[in-house]
Design a protein around this nucleic acid. Structure first.
Lengths: 224, 224
DNA sequence: GCAAATTAATGATTTATTCAAG
DNA sequence: CTTGAATAAATCATTAATTTGC
């Protein structure tokens, strides 16, 4: 089934003729027909360029059969090349924890960049690693705290003041949320961009080309 | 339906003491205790380099930066270069929906890049917009479907077959999840990097200086 | 008719869960 | 088991439509 994806897609291309397709595909946006510039663009939007016939030796052909990922033995525990995950060094962890202790929770893009540069002195690292580290650390500290408080409720000794606030969701449920010095939902201050190339041109594109074929239409990845 | 949501919070805050329970408080919106953040870690690690006293006008390399949003006199609705959010054009929406219909759900970095380039022909857009669009669209389609299925349960006419799969979480709860052609939790195939500069050098920093100064340690952001 | 006040949509973020490498 | 990585859910925040009072 995976193989028909492209086919199916091209089918959608009939769209090239319609001024806009609107009708055909219900966009149902009840309220707002943002009709302004109807005339312009009749542009077909050359999706053909998307297909990129050469986009790689995909495996979609043999489709789902053996997902098995394979070879790519590349025994380098080394950071990056192919697809190993970030393996923080002691210094990096130390610094990150220090920052966390200092109160940092959700660094914005600029902060992340700076941190990444600094930590880069101790080992390979990318911005996303820093981002994820804070996300995970925060979440796990929270869990841990919750667990411990739960445990303490069993043996009511040390009260363990851990401030949490309950809040009602729109659905009426009541959830509990740790109160942090850092408030969630700040202003928009982070910005990310997709850096797809970095991985692509990552040195030898050979060994790990197996790395999840970048299909254009992963209709039935059968993952998970 | 009464969506007075905006008001009615602000209350509670009794935290500080009770381990938790605190039932009565509804939906508080902490709104910034505004504690005097005297923390300022005495940094061991040369955080000094982080501060970057001149963290003002960036535009680091000006390298590719093909973005040039500026004037773009196209006499258009041209999104405000400042900090407004992406406002998709009809063509962009049309294409995105077409792709969605074609089965695309969580495009990887490369796909996002290509889509962004194509959609860029119809108006300013960034990769993250594409990413978010898919995330939101997928989630909202799911909601919609769930709602409708729920509604149909009341009036059992049209059965509305909507395949959902139930799965048990680690905690033992059973959740329902829409079954999509695209499976969640695929392999790692996306990659992002924080592009903090772009926003920084965003033209005149005057009118909305209120825009959250990028502090390094948002201990008590008072935001939200 | 028109502009302020409402409301519905939906873009952008953050938190919660889950997966899986080591 | 620990934890980096990634996705889904919840929710905040801004804008386009719609409604309302003149």
């Amino acid at each position: 089934m995976g193989s028909m994806k492209v086919h199916q897609f091209t089918r959608g291309l009939i769209w090239e003729h319609e001024p806009f397709l609107t009708l055909g595909c219900k966009r149902l946006r009840p309220l707002a027909p943002k009709l302004p510039n109807t005339k312009t663009i009749t542009t077909p939007f050359d999706l053909k360029s998307f297909i990129r016939p050469e986009s790689g030796p995909r495996k979609p052909v043999s489709s789902d059969d053996t997902k098995k990922d394979p070879p790519s033995p590349q025994g380098q525990i080394e950071t990056h090349p192919g697809g190993t995950r970030w393996n923080p060094t002691q210094e990096q962890i130390g610094i990150l924890e220090m920052l966390y202790k200092g109160g940092m929770r959700t660094p914005n893009a600029q902060q992340i960049e700076q941190i990444t540069v600094q930590l880069g002195k101790y080992g390979k690292i990318e911005g996303k690693n820093v981002f994820y580290w804070f996300q995970n650390h925060k979440a796990r500290e929270r869990q841990k705290q919750k667990r411990s408080s739960l445990a303490s409720s069993h043996s009511p000794r040390t009260p363990t003041i851990h401030s949490v606030v309950t809040l009602e969701t729109t659905r009426g449920e009541v959830v509990e949320r740790d109160h942090e010095e850092d408030s969630p939902y700040k202003k928009k201050c982070r910005r990310w961009v997709f850096d797809c190339l970095e991985e692509q041109n990552m040195s030898s594109p050979c060994e790990q080309e197996e790395h999840r074929t970048l299909e254009l239409f992963p209709l039935h990845p059968e993952g998970r």
